[in-house]
Design a protein around this nucleic acid. Structure first.
Lengths: 342, 342
DNA sequence: TTGTAGGCGTTATCAC
DNA sequence: GTGATAACGCCTACAA
């Protein structure tokens, strides 16, 4: 391994000067500067980032703790983070916490121990995720996907608005019995989307029916079961808002098995992209979060915080309604002429 | 920050003793050992992995360089790597090289500079991916998904066999004009799958037709275009082997747009899972690689190599045929009564 | 069994 | 502008 000492000898200067040239931390005579750079080139020297990290007490590494690496929303976030970090010269340690608060805690420790310079996290739980140790070390923490009170900054969409918009869309399509398949009750993001749903329902003067809201686990099987339950109701819903992408897959399967057609028998709107299924399901609408951009912005913000070029910010991006409806080919079977007041 | 020195003072011993207790590198009097552990506990001490890494010249970090983080095959590999690494106390730096040899090279440098202890890589290109620097540093490198001559070890499926099996399956279903949508010509893995296809075609006594093989880019749009091209042939194929998952999505869309039904009009077999689309496409068969297990084994093997508990190995896992056929509801329109000899 | 001391490769603080 | 030198936190000869 080529060290700075080798370079300094080759260039006939001290290692301090080499360091100055390489980091630009002080002025150096142009001639010596050239000599140093030549030596660096000749020997193929590259700084040892571990030694640098130890000395500077700061690495060129950020950590990304995500909820579910098999969910395309998070992989897109991940890509955004990575691209953005790379441009700034940072590497990314990826941690997949799996919605598991213990696993997340373990990873938060690793992050500290590895001396990462900052963290981007999609918290497992808004209340229980504990980043106080990181903050005590003055490490910036940026929350994505779910708000975290104590975070240094965040990049989120307004999930209440998004939930309301999604529901409005169904209402606009003439739906009057709109069901919602939502995430775990303790999930703050899911709760926001559900609140938006309720808001829209209320605004439209529709009745809030307990049976029309089903809590599930944010996974395919949860969406499947929830949808089956909804289809068993005496009065079937004519609209369905599913609050995440993996559950939407389950919903689509349940509908297919039951022979319920979109949009003829029911209107459906999902949340987040289904890169694979979507191409094959032309009449599914959805609320799309700008996942890649969320990642990009989070990394940019984090690195600004690390460099202290920026005070913390809370960035709110817009979720976008992707409409892919077509007119139903016949009258939906559950659509009453007036809003039901049951 | 709590250092070893703090612990040593608290316990009334030297820092060397603390180190010995913590690393188990030498016997320590049970009493002092207890005192040290008590002090560690009391102060909440945790070793600084950066300092340790500098001193030991080896980190607890491995790098994972993958081809495409938006491809569920690789995310599953990634998950396997991560779970397995975590159990062994290693962290994972994730690098998404995007099939881009330059980006890959950049990441290979980062890996060196960050002093990772080893690398798992799905190479961008079997010939051009250059890991000689890593090997010169005696860092183990495990190849997955694509073989790499110089790699320390590898975890792969036999892609030739898998390609042949997939094709055999179509033949077994009665297909006689079987097309193949394959990956970029310079992609060794794609080439293997194609070779397997040719082998099966030859073995069955079918003719090898140039028009029936289309090279594409391993992405959705490539699969889409390739399939459209195949559908325009005067004599349409009655079977189709698509050599990766993202292209299969494009294929499905093209078939859908053209009103070509599976399996009535054409038999299709894909490669690797389509977690989302598959549930909605019940009659698509596929060759499934054990992606999660590939990742797991790769990490295990790598860590064994790092610890020198194991010499290099080349592990070959089986790809599995997932049959989801049903009998066509009517006679396929392109199926000749005898193998065509055009 | 335990302590002392030196060094891993860099950078920051002094002098000069 | 440049060069010694110490220090980042840990591990490991070597000595006791």
């Amino acid at each position: 391994m080529v060290t700075m000492l080798d370079v300094s000898r080759e260039a006939g200067v001290s290692s301090a000067t080499v360091s100055r040239v390489l980091t630009g931390s002080a002025e150096v005579e142009p001639a010596t500067r050239m000599a140093v750079l030549a030596a660096v080139e000749k020997l193929g020297y590259r700084p040892n980032l571990v030694a640098r990290g130890l000395r500077r007490q700061a690495s060129q590494v950020i950590a990304l703790i995500i909820t579910d690496i098999e969910n395309p929303f998070y992989t897109a976030v991940c890509r955004g983070v990575e691209d953005s970090a790379r441009l700034a010269g940072y590497s990314v340690i990826l941690c997949n916490a799996d919605r598991d608060i213990e696993k997340e805690r373990e990873y938060l420790r690793v992050v500290e121990d590895q001396n990462a310079s900052g963290v981007i996290i999609s918290p497992a739980n808004a209340r229980r995720t504990d980043i106080s140790n990181l903050l005590a070390r003055r490490l910036p923490v940026i929350a994505v996907d779910m708000a975290l009170d104590s975070a240094t900054g965040s990049v989120l969409v307004d999930n209440k608005d998004a939930g309301a918009l999604a529901t409005d869309h169904l209402i606009g399509n003439g739906c009057r019995r709109i069901a919602c398949v939502t995430g775990p009750a303790e999930n703050a993001t899911a709760a926001d989307r559900l609140e938006g749903y309720f808001r829209a329902i209320a605004k439209a003067g529709l009745t809030k029916e307990r049976d029309l809201v089903v809590y599930a686990n944010y996974m395919e099987d949860g969406g499947y079961e929830a949808t089956k339950r909804l289809l068993k109701l005496k009065k079937r819903p004519d609209g369905l808002f599913v609050t995440n992408n993996r559950m939407t897959v389950g919903t689509l399967r349940a509908l297919q098995e039951a022979g319920v057609a979109i949009p003829d028998d029911i209107n459906v709107i999902g949340f987040d992209e289904l890169p694979w299924a979507l191409e094959l399901h032309p009449h599914l609408s959805l609320m799309r979060q700008p996942a890649y951009r969320i990642g990009q912005e989070a990394a940019r913000l984090l690195i600004d915080c690390i460099r202290k070029e920026n005070t913390a910010q809370h960035i709110v991006l817009d979720a976008e309604l992707v409409t892919r409806d077509r007119q139903p080919s016949r009258q939906p079977r559950n659509k009453p002429s007036k809003p039901s007041r049951s």
